[in-house]
């Protein structure tokens, strides 16, 4: 581990310890923030009793569905758009301003179109993630070495195998950036829609606990989301570093 890594761990642990001391000493009201140990204890109790399992399964499966759709769909759309430069130029300003538009507002319309199920939430997660993946795919394809494409033409490969055997591997580092963003955006889209609009899932459970002044439960659920998102990100980061190192690109 590098020196910066140790300092980072020290800072995070120090922040948690400081929060613990401040809340235990009663400097902050228990109604505002509870000590981290109490959060962990509450989460342990919730998981042990199994009562939040349905919410956890629902949220995580929705996130997974949104992620698979946005990563896969974004890659295919990116390939298609990259093949049509004129379309790409026309799309460019739309893609660049896309994330300025909040999508939650379309939730009621999605309910009308897809019915009252998990589908509208998955679609919102997909809409959030797909454009990040498209942009990453375009970036990656721009950097496929010319010579590799020439070799492909010389050996008369068909477009599908060019995509799979040449473009995909060459663009992988950039695609991975897109994948990381797609994961993050799927989480954000799904949990935010649950929080504001839905009647089930972890996001809803948090807002329900907030509305019922059930502070320990609220913090326990928040802790669960923070820990699981951070864990997913760390796994992705490790995979990425390993991949980059194999290509001799590690930072």
């Amino acid at each position: 581990m590098t020196r910066a890594g140790w300092i980072r761990i020290a800072i995070v642990l120090g922040a948690i310890a400081a929060l613990e001391v401040v809340t235990q000493a009663g400097l902050v009201s228990r109604h505002t923030i509870i000590p981290p140990t109490a959060m962990a204890a509450a989460l342990w109790g919730l998981i042990g009793s199994g009562e939040i399992m349905p919410d956890i399964t629902k949220t995580l499966s929705n996130v997974a569905a949104a992620f698979v759709l946005s990563a896969g769909g974004g890659f295919v759309l990116g390939l298609l758009i990259h093949a049509a430069p004129r379309l790409r130029r026309a799309l460019d300003p739309l893609l660049a301003t896309y994330y300025a538009v909040p999508f939650f507002v379309f939730y009621p319309l999605l309910i009308v179109i897809f019915g009252m199920s998990d589908l509208p939430i998955i679609v919102i997660g997909f809409l959030f993630g797909v454009v990040a993946m498209i942009i990453a795919t375009l970036n990656g394809l721009d950097r496929v070495p010319r010579v590799a494409l020439k070799v492909a033409r010389l050996s008369r490969m068909d477009p599908v195998s060019i995509a799979l055997l040449i473009k995909f591997p060459a663009a992988t580092p950039y695609l991975f950036t897109g994948v990381k963003l797609a994961v993050a955006y799927s989480f954000i889209g799904v949990i935010a829609s649950e929080f504001i609009l839905s009647g089930a899932g972890l996001g809803f459970a948090i807002s329900y606990a907030y509305n019922n002044f059930d502070t320990p439960r609220m913090y326990a659920l928040m802790l669960f989301i923070l820990v699981s998102v951070t864990a997913v990100n760390m796994v992705l980061h490790t995979i990425e570093q390993r991949m980059l190192r194999r290509r001799g690109l590690a930072r």
Partner: peptide, 16 residues
């Protein structure tokens, strides 16, 4: 890591 968090989960804390 903070960027990737769904910050909406923290909104109740900010309200409190």
């Amino acid at each position: 890591a903070l960027y990737a968090l769904p910050k909406i989960t923290l909104y109740p804390v900010i309200l409190l």
